[in-house]
Design a protein around this nucleic acid. Structure first.
Lengths: 90, 90
DNA sequence: ATATCAAATAGATGAATTTCAATGTGAGGT
DNA sequence: ACCTCACATTGAAATTCATCTATTTGATAT
């Protein structure tokens, strides 16, 4: 895991709207259209943020017909957690 | 802690050079000039990144004459850790 | 096949970020 | 007082990012 990969993981957390999305996903899986209802952004903007969140590994999408159900990824979150823990061991 | 504050904390981790700096600080306190030696950026660029790192709370600077000694901040890192942990409790 | 709905993509725009060269500031040292 | 060293600030250029409108894709239903 190099510096670039680590930065990509944490891109998930460095935008206000993406934090908002993560908090919405705490309730459990939600499709993009549900998220869209609860946010004040357009559909393409949401799509953009979902791509960054998925690229970071913090969120995963499950395709189901024309819907995509997004949820938090334990593995992704664990990766982020591991790095933060690593910083603390001094 | 609102979405904006959380995003500000994690700004520390979403740039390649800042991750590099954090890793260098794992060894312990270092002054800016030491960090500068080990990075391939100019002094003003380093100064810019140090500001973002300090604003995020992940790094603290200790002034000592004309030097500033930077180190990782346990409190800051703990804050980040708490948020990530919060995401995992589902 | 057509219509409809969910989501992605393309393209544009403005804002934010990264970076550098030049300059300023402030603390020691001579 | 002057010089030097460590760092910050300014201002500008280049890049990246967030956002929008418009359009496309892909899946389901009629």
């Amino acid at each position: 895991m190099n510096e670039k990969e680590i930065a990509t993981i944490f891109k998930a957390f460095c935008d206000e709207n993406r934090i908002r999305i993560l908090l919405l996903l705490l309730d459990g899986e939600k499709c993009a259209c549900r998220l869209l209802e609860e946010m004040n952004i357009t559909q393409p903007t949401l799509s953009h943020h979902m791509k960054i969140l998925c690229d970071s590994g913090i969120v995963v999408g499950r395709k189901d017909g024309k819907w995509i159900h997004y949820s938090l990824s334990d593995e992704g979150i664990e990766k982020a957690q591991k790095f933060i823990e690593f910083l603390r061991r001094k």
